[in-house]
Amino acid sequence: MTAQVESELETETEELTVREAIRQAMREELERDEDVFLIGEDIGVFGGVLEVTGDLYEDFGPERIKDTPISEAGFMGAATGAAATGTRPVVELMFSDFTGVAMEQIMNQMAKMRYMFGGKAEMPVTVRTTEGGGMGAASQHSGTVHSWIAHFPGLKAVAPGTAASAKGLTKAAIRSNDPVFVFENKMIYEQRGAVPTDEDFTIPIGEAAVEREGEDVTVVATQRLVGESLETAENMADDTSVEVIDPRSLYPLDIDTIVESVKKTGRLIVADESPLSYGTHAEIVARVQEEAFFSLDAPIQRVGTPDTHIPFSPPLEQEVLPSGDDVREAIQRVT
């Protein structure tokens, strides 16, 4: 285990779900910094459609937990303008599938202001949004779009796979002076894990975590696939020693941790729920071959959604969604 993971484990922890961890992160940051406020649709009394903001409204009231009209472009733009003028908005974009509705504000304002103005604008805005299939929410509420954001210059993208990283990344995002998107996979909100209780626990954006050490093959997995890959690794432990890395940040990407692992194992699986073509998988593969080409003993394998939308019918949904079984099969193909 890396030094960093060890030190995380040594700190005092409590068991939380991913949902509770994110809410706790927001609660602590709201308490710590008066300039922080939450803004989004039905995040107040209603508590958020996926119940992430929950009871924060009871403690912080309508001034700090702001329910907006159903105006993704309007409130994304307002959050951008607010961030440039002295406050620290935390936006909830109900489903990541609605990113397109607000994309102009994201790509032409939020992402570009600091640069276009020669560094003379701060952009401390956080955008939390939910991704992923698995609950029968059908094509317009199940997508995984983080590759778009990670691809777009001027935006940071993080995607927690555990309760601890959900808390640490959310807090780091809120404290950052850059626009940070936090991609929450909706299928792991109930996943439990040990979360440091220290109110200053954050996970630096751009640091991967080695979640399990192994010798034979490296699995770089994100979001829901972190837990499923760990389970797969455990199940295969008698035959194959699997190292599992959660990059946690998609941009910037901690390529060093991944490359170090591939140099040791010589084999790489990249598992991410986004569509397979032109995306997150491709980026990791490209960078690994740049830096560890001669350490590779087998072709790199990708596990993801096979360029379809997420269908409604549960058996069809399971057909296209990547899983721990797909990770196992990929490992078996190269070991």
Binding site: A82, T85, T87
Partner: peptide
């Protein structure tokens, strides 16, 4: 794009 920016500044 200016009006959302103004709304945001007014929000701050």
């Amino acid at each position: 794009a200016g009006p959302p920016m103004a709304t945001g500044a007014a929000l701050s």
